[in-house]
Design a protein around this nucleic acid. Sequence first.
DNA 1: TGCCTATATATAGCGTCCCTATATAGTGGT
DNA 2: ACCACTATATAGGGACGCTATATATAGGCA
Lengths: 110, 110
Amino acid sequence: MIGANIKRGSSELAVLSVLEAGPLHGYEIARRIERNTRGALRFTLASLYPLLYRMESRGWLKAAWSETGDARARRCYRLTAAGRKKLAPLRKEWNDLFRALARLAEAHHA
Amino acid sequence: MIGANIKRGSSELAVLSVLEAGPLHGYEIARRIERNTRGALRFTLASLYPLLYRMESRGWLKAAWSETGDARARRCYRLTAAGRKKLAPLRKEWNDLFRALARLAEAHHA
DNA sequence: TGCCTATATATAGCGTCCCTATATAGTGGT
DNA sequence: ACCACTATATAGGGACGCTATATATAGGCA
């Protein structure tokens, strides 16, 4: 598992990424992230729900109680246009960070 | 510049990386990181000094007031053996995170 | 001489994010 | 009846980087 201090800030990108494929409810979001990253990224549900509320309040997600007559009460989250628009720049920022760290690692070998 | 929330936790690795090449004082550490990453990573000195103290208290760095009769009072930081040992696993963690985020991005295209 | 910028270290206070711990409740298997 | 899994929710705390601020020396320029 990747340490908490390292993955700080990556959760937003992880959530946006899994929702890019289609709407999901909270519990399933967590499971997808864990499965798709083969356990490397895994955050507790107590971390996930506050994150979802933050992202919703920023207008990146839209939540709706499932109306399909499900037996269970489920909040289904989907990407808004704003959330989708956030994905590319966010990925760029992360790529920039990794390139920057890579350059620091290489510098002393040069 | 990379946002604060994204680069969270990367500062430690950045400091360890620039000190890998040899001891430096605080102000120079900041300058090297900014220069080597072409401005992508840049943190204020008010962020840097508390970070250096934390890393020193963990035994990763060792500080010494420069004894070379410098006009200016400078604290020179160097990697300890423990700090050097921390570098490889820390880099691995960051690479794991990068790969995990990449897998999430690819998943919905598959 | 006086002023400004760059160098150099340091602390206070704040916001954000992720964590552990805890609460609540429906569902399905044995 | 019990237990594991599913599902959402809140409280409280720790860690980290930020802005703002304070202090002080060195070098350049007018």
